[in-house]
Amino acid sequence: MRPRLDPHRLQALVIGASAGGIDALMHVLPALPADCPIPVVVVVHLPENQPSLLPEVFGPRVDLEVKEADEKEPVEPGTIYFAPPGYHLLIERDRTFSLSVEAPVHYSRPAIDILFETAAAAYGPTLAAMLLTGANEDGAAGLAHVARLGGTVLIQDPDEARIATMPLAGLRAVGDQATVLPLASLALMLRALRTKESR
């Protein structure tokens, strides 16, 4: 069976990536259609003390609005949000963003675990979470939360990932609840996230 994301059931997509993550995101984010009906929230591990430039990098390459998430900002459909460097990004149950400077998790702030955990609590079974390449184990515990609350878990095929540590840790945490795919197939899944049925 070819796995599929149902745009009418899903309410949010969260993505985590670390080492090699920008390249990996270059494969998946541009696949999102302009009428994507859900918000896409992304944590990429980057150095803390510099502006991330992620919105500038991805803005011209995708069809959706791209921005850094602000605290208290409502999580809106059809928008790609990046976590600001030096802050953890959380989603509240009322579907607004919060930021926190609590200690780094797996040496990372923002941490993928914190985004995934809080998004799972906010969206439950209507969340899809995607874990990509990376050299540490951030995101694995978060995926376990997503799976436990009935969300969809997508993991980049570790054989293909630039660095397999993060996808492998994710797999260990959720086992066969994960759908494991190469980037090209993940991109195809995202392409189907559109308001109208494709002709």
């Binding site: 953890h88 959380l90 149950r93 926190s100 609590e102 955990e117 809080t118 609590a121």
Partner: peptide
Amino acid sequence: YSPASLKRR
């Protein structure tokens, strides 16, 4: 206080 972070802590 914002609940999500409080809850984690």
